[in-house]
Structure formats: structure tokens, C-alpha cells
């Protein structure tokens, strides 16, 4: 069954052309993409992620404020009970921030200029890893 991905844009930068392109590429790769537009608060992104029970949250950030926004989103996800949902980040991410982002818990980064093919492959990889980690998880009766 198709995995569900929330594509969200936290922060104040006002253009979402990149995020929309990503949403379309993911749809064309067979994913169900929940798209919520620009200027979302991290806490609202977390609420939407758990309401929709997505398999992954993809953040698109062009403002340069990615460290703070990603940290806030991951904390908000944990508070909403969705700390197990993998987070990936795309946008203007300088290479020296990739490792710090990973330390925050980010599973993959897609800096501006990444090809959509690489992005789709990267998303598949994160989802596969996550599925392997949570294998056998379901309700006990």
C-alpha cells in the first residue's frame, strides 16, 4: 500500500515552488502526499502528522533557519506522540549543517540541487529502513 508523506513548509519564506515540485514527484512515484502549503508552525505540522498518521514528514526550508525549525518540529512530534515518524529535510542546507541535522534525528537531507530521482530514492531508503526497524509492531490483543 502506498506510503503516506506529509510535505510541509515551516518558517516564513513565502515560496513553495520547490515543495510543490517535490509533492508532485512523490505522487508520481506512487506516494500519497499530504500537502499543507506555506508558513506552517512546527507544532501544527506535528499535529497534522499524527492526525494523518503519515509514514514520513518531509520539511522544505529555504529561509536558512533550518536548525531551529527542525529542532522545534522534532520536539513537537515527540510531544504529539509521533517521535517515531521519520523526518527528512530539503532546501538550502549547507553541507556543514548535514551532520548536526542528523544528530537532531533527521534521517536524510536533500540540499537544493538534489535531483528528484535521488530524492525519491532517498525517501524509499528511509522508509525501508524504518519499516525494518518497526517490523512486527502491531497491537497486542
Amino acid at each position: 500500500m502506498a506510503a503516506r508523506i506529509l510535505v510541509a513548509k515551516p518558517g516564513l519564506d513565502g515560496h513553495d515552488r520547490g515543495a510543490k515540485l517535490v509533492a508532485v514527484a512523490l505522487r508520481d512515484a506512487g506516494f500519497e502526499v499530504i500537502y499543507t502549503g506555506i508558513r506552517q508552525l512546527p507544532v501544527d505540522i506535528a499535529t497534522i502528522a499524527v492526525q494523518e498518521n503519515v509514514d514520513m514528514v518531509g520539511l522544505s526550508i529555504l529561509s536558512g533557519a533550518h536548525m531551529a525549525l527542525v529542532r522545534k518540529t522534532i520536539i513537537a512530534l515527540e510531544e504529539a506522540g509521533g517521535g517515531d515518524i521519520p523526518v527528512v529535510v530539503g532546501g538550502t542546507i549547507p553541507s556543514f549543517d548535514v551532520e548536526p541535522l542528523q544528530e537532531l534525528g533527521v534521517r536524510a537531507t536533500f540540499p537544493t540541487g538534489s535531483s528528484l530521482t535521488d530524492l525519491v530514492a532517498g525517501v524509499h531508503k528511509v522508509l525501508d529502513q524504518h519499516a525494518a526497524e518497526t517490523e512486527g509492531t502491531s497491537w497486542t490483543s
Binding site: V24, L26, G30, E32, V33, I48
Partner: peptide, 30 residues
């Protein structure tokens, strides 16, 4: 063709996101 979908309805309902009395769920007619 792909089984994928873009689910964008809730973009019109964002003002309710903080209201615990509202639950919104997007469904793909897959």
C-alpha cells in the same frame, strides 16, 4: 497510473488545527 495522490483538502481547514475537538483525515480513494 501511479497509485499516488496529492491530498490537499485540509489546506482550506488549517484554522482548526489547534482545536482538539476537530480531527481531520485525508483519504486517497486508492
Amino acid at each position: 497510473l501511479t497509485g499516488g495522490a496529492i491530498l490537499g483538502d485540509r489546506i482550506r481547514m488549517l484554522r482548526h488545527v489547534k482545536d482538539p475537538g476537530v480531527y481531520i483525515r485525508s483519504f486517497a480513494a486508492r
